[in-house]
């Protein structure tokens, strides 16, 4: 149990997927102008990343590894993630229109979100078992959501501030991200026994 909690805390805060591993930067910078949209995107990422970790683990352990095809993991994972996202989209549309309305538009974007592929590959490299992989995927996605919602909060405030012309836009967002990254450094010193 302690082990699983440790994985969640590590994935979400200490090794934050955006601020220390730089995965999913495109959407982190591009879709963070409002807290509401950021939170929906975060929700969609949590949803997809958790399922994708589970599916990628099963595929790798029961099909790729026994057949000695582990060098094909990149191709297989990206295709499975793309197909999975389509399936999730169709499934949500049928069964839960409310959820689809909130998360649906973000789903195509997540296919090319490197966080999803990155976590699937990292799970294999780190040798996690099934439960650990799913927990790691979930924790990583929670970390992503925390980071993007915090950044959106900061950006909503900055909208009212008088920012010098050359810093407007991308540089301002990157400066905010740098400061957040420094703050997240604090988490690397926590210990859970």
């Amino acid at each position: 149990m302690t082990n699983l909690i440790l994985i969640i805390v590590t994935a979400a805060l200490v090794n934050n997927v955006v601020l220390s591993q730089f995965l999913g930067i495109c959407s982190f910078v591009g879709v963070s102008n409002q807290i509401k949209t950021s939170a929906s995107l975060g929700g969609a990422v949590i949803f997809v990343l958790t399922i994708a970790s589970a599916v990628a683990y099963l595929l790798y352990t029961f099909i790729l590894a026994p057949l000695g095809l582990d060098y094909l993991q990149t191709i297989v994972f990206i295709l499975v993630i793309a197909a999975l996202v389509q399936l999730v989209e169709m499934f949500l549309k049928k069964t839960s229109p409310g959820l689809y309305k909130a998360l649906g538009i973000f789903l195509p974007l997540i296919t090319t979100n490197c966080a999803v592929l990155g976590v699937a590959l990292n799970n294999v490299t780190d040798g996690y078992n099934f439960i650990e992989s799913v927990i790691n995927g979930f924790g990583t996605a929670v970390g992503y959501t925390i980071a993007i919602v915090l950044l959106a909060g900061i950006r909503e405030r900055i909208d009212n501030a008088d920012v010098p012309e050359p810093i407007k836009g991308a540089p301002m967002v990157l400066f905010c991200a740098a400061l957040m990254g420094m703050a997240f450094f604090g988490f690397s010193s926590i210990s859970i026994g």
Binding site: C26, S27, G30, S32, N33, P108, L109, G169, A170
Partner: peptide
Amino acid sequence: KGKEFVGEGEGAGCAGCAMADTCLV
């Protein structure tokens, strides 16, 4: 381009992304 990229210019978010046309975001 920086401004466009973060959604303050014309095309909000992810300017130049390959998925831009299909993406509803």
